[in-house]
Design a protein around this nucleic acid. Structure first.
Lengths: 211, 211
DNA sequence: TGCGACTGAATGACGGTTCATTCACCCGAG
DNA sequence: CTCGGGTGAATGAACCGTCATTCAGTCGCA
């Protein structure tokens, strides 16, 4: 049976996805430069040449992977903060959601965290729109908080966003390099939120100076 | 003149230094993998083979460069905070000194910031003692502040140190990728200090809640 | 003259990319 | 229903450029 062309197109899209999945894990394990195209092909269950039917080059494969995964991350974060009303809670939720993603999908995190930097070298011209969107999203939460008078308005929101991303990224990296041996990254999320909001001087212990 | 063996050893040491300098700039410009040993040799004014008289391999060259520069950074930071008495001022000074180093020696910063990550891949076994010392130094400042009651003691100092490094590193990276077009990284140091100490909620504008 | 630092052309491995070939499937004609 | 020509996705072995590394020889000094 299978009357009207069942999944010729479906199979094609499926294969592209399989290659991206394989690339995600191989890049995560070895890094972009040490990763072998032939290993990606083997893991995806396709021939070496097939990869070049879907991607122009190894570089293009990395960029496509990047866009694909970053798009998912952005969507997940947008969904997480959408139902929250207060900007401060949005910020805390954003942080928790990001670090939860890292814990749940370490190989995605590895690619984003490590490859983002090294590729900034040979991708100088590639403007990286998905990552820019990530930063914009975070900056918007901060700007909201500033507009609502909950956050210090003297700090430029885009720079604050970068700083926060720096914390998240570094935590992700150190956690990835020792796979959760030393600390629970999701639990860490809450005091990172506290640290960023109240500062080192004003943690839970001395939240408001009543002195 | 030059009675007792003037610079046979000195000349050797000098050549080693020249190679490290050249490697610093070439790695900074192209990244480790795209960097060519022959370009480093040319820039250092030595033959390709000479490099292998001083370093076991290209990997070894990167590691040696790393240790050399990180050692300098650690020394500069230690010197900067040594005369400061109060832990909070030490922390501010540390942050300012680090970002000043980035601005003054961008190629060192580039190597430390970018290559540290990508090399974490093929250097899994290399424990990176200098970077560990950097973190220890920063954590010590925080622990001092906690002991003095100036900083929230509920935050583990090593984790706070990592978070702060994350901010510094991300700021350095974004500045390096657009060479100071967008912001003055040294000026940024002061509000980063404020952000980390007082938090987003308590910037200069609302420093102490008297409410 | 002897020694060892230095040289740089030669080497060999390596891996991204190509492309001649295969073959599973479709479709129209008989 | 069946046969056979056509199609193009998929294959994977081979190609070819690209370096890291080596080593036979040079040079300058003691």
């Amino acid at each position: 049976m299978t009357v009207h062309s069942p999944e010729p197109a479906k199979a094609g899209g499926d294969k592209r996805e399989r290659i991206l999945d394989a690339a995600e894990h191989v890049f995560a394990e070895h890094g972009f430069f040490a990763a072998r195209v032939s290993e990606i092909a083997k893991r995806a269950g396709v021939a070496d040449g097939t990869i070049y039917l879907y991607f122009k080059s190894k570089d293009d494969l990395l960029i496509s992977l990047f866009e694909s995964r970053m798009e998912r991350v952005n969507a997940a974060l947008a969904e997480a903060i959408a139902p929250i009303a207060r900007p401060l809670d949005k910020l805390r939720t954003f942080i928790r959601a990001y670090l939860t993603l890292v814990a749940e999908q370490p190989s995605v995190a590895e690619v984003l965290t490590v490859e983002l930097r090294q590729s900034s070298k040979f991708m100088k011209e590639y403007s990286n729109p998905r990552f820019a969107e990530f930063l914009r999203q975070l900056a918007a939460v901060i700007a909201d908080g500033q507009a609502a008078g909950e956050l210090d308005a003297s700090v430029p929101a885009p720079l604050a966003a970068r700083a926060i991303f720096g914390v998240l990224d570094e935590l992700a990296l150190s956690w990835l390099l020792q796979r959760g041996e030393k600390f629970d990254i999701v639990r860490a999320a809450d005091w990172v939120g506290g640290l960023l909001i109240h500062g080192l001087a004003g943690g839970p212990g001395l939240q408001r100076s009543n002195a």
